[in-house]
Design a protein around this nucleic acid. Structure first.
Lengths: 202, 202
DNA sequence: GTCTATACCTAGATAGAC
DNA sequence: GTCTATCTAGGTATAGAC
């Protein structure tokens, strides 16, 4: 009788847990937090509802983990683009484009991350991550101001406007049905974002 | 035995209904939709939970009425400012200021209207009203473009950015603790909004 | 018409068999 | 470890007394 779990046992458990998180993410992207009951998630993962509690102490804990994984990826990608090569305005432009593009490519998940009704624990995470998005935008705006590329401004407010604008576009279910519309939408959104930061219009 | 309600009866019923809506609005502004149970609302109104159903067929119907009243007031006020006197850029500036100011003055209600988790019926109303806000902003932006005061742009996207920026500011619980901070916040927000629409910076 | 009491449903969580 | 069955809590809605 083993007093510790063997490496094989651990990795199997890890795998099951990861699988559960992945399935839960799909369910949430598909039907939203409010419809993602423990039963629905367990069904999607092909396990019994009770078994979920082998991996997470509560539904809220699973939901938070799902949120953190997905939102964390977005913060990472956005951070790389905004902190990457090029002058601040170029990076801002690419950042808005990338953020919006990724969201439009996975609307269900983007909506769940940005706006969909969720339990308080997830709501708290959301506030935290929105602050992170805004902090990333704010930093590049500050750099642009420092470099003389952008006029003096409250970078935090501008960052909030950028985050809000992108979110608002996604919330509208009518937006961007086809590929051409998406391209135009991204162009218009990027233009509005650059104006918002005070960048000279092209 | 009267076959019809007397005027006195009707007005008493109306009054009770209005009172219920008012109390429900306060509860929602105070604790949010998710915590505004029928019991909580009935308690606030000083009636029994069951009596709520004398005035509304369901909790959802009451919630929708609460939302419509409150959101309708905001649309009306915003519409008057944006459609009032002055050139388009002036009106836009005042509109952003008024919208944000009213929201900051009643944060609980503003949060409930703009962002707080809510049941699907309320969520649908919210989408509808956000579109109305955006339509109002978009109209004045179009007028500004037509008048040559603003550069050519997608007015819908700009309007979404304005709505989103204001909403984003409100969601952050850290913002505007004191009066001075509120004034600065409004100034910064208005400046960002005007830049977003391409108005010449002051 | 309003209250009290309760039925009923949904959904999260648990216990014990296998 | 996973499943089945069950318990429980919270909240909407209803029934019947007053």
């Amino acid at each position: 009788m083993a007093y510790r779990k063997t490496p094989a046992e651990i990795s199997r458990l890890e795998a099951a847990r990861e699988r559960l998180i992945g399935c839960a993410t799909e369910v949430v992207a598909d039907v939203g937090w409010s419809q993602a009951s423990v039963n629905a998630v367990a069904d999607a993962a092909g396990i019994a509802a009770g078994s979920v509690y082998q991996h997470f102490p509560s539904k809220a804990a699973l939901a938070v983990e799902v949120f953190r994984r997905a939102a964390g990826r977005e913060v990472e990608v956005l951070g790389e683009v905004l902190g990457g090569a090029g002058d601040p305005v170029e990076r801002l432009s690419r950042g808005v484009d990338v953020f919006a593009r990724r969201a439009l490519e996975n609307r269900g998940l983007a909506y769940a991350l940005l706006a969909a009704p969720a339990e308080p624990a997830v709501g708290a995470e959301r506030l935290d991550f929105r602050r992170r998005y805004r902090a990333l935008f704010a930093e590049v705006v500050r750099e642009g101001v420092a470099a003389g590329q952008l006029p003096p401004q409250n970078a935090e407010i501008t960052a909030a406007a950028l985050t809000g604008a992108i979110g608002e576009v996604l919330v509208d279910p009518l937006a961007a049905a086809d590929e051409n519309a998406t391209q135009q939408l991204l162009a218009d959104l990027t233009a509005a974002a650059l104006r918002c930061a005070g960048a000279p219009t092209a």
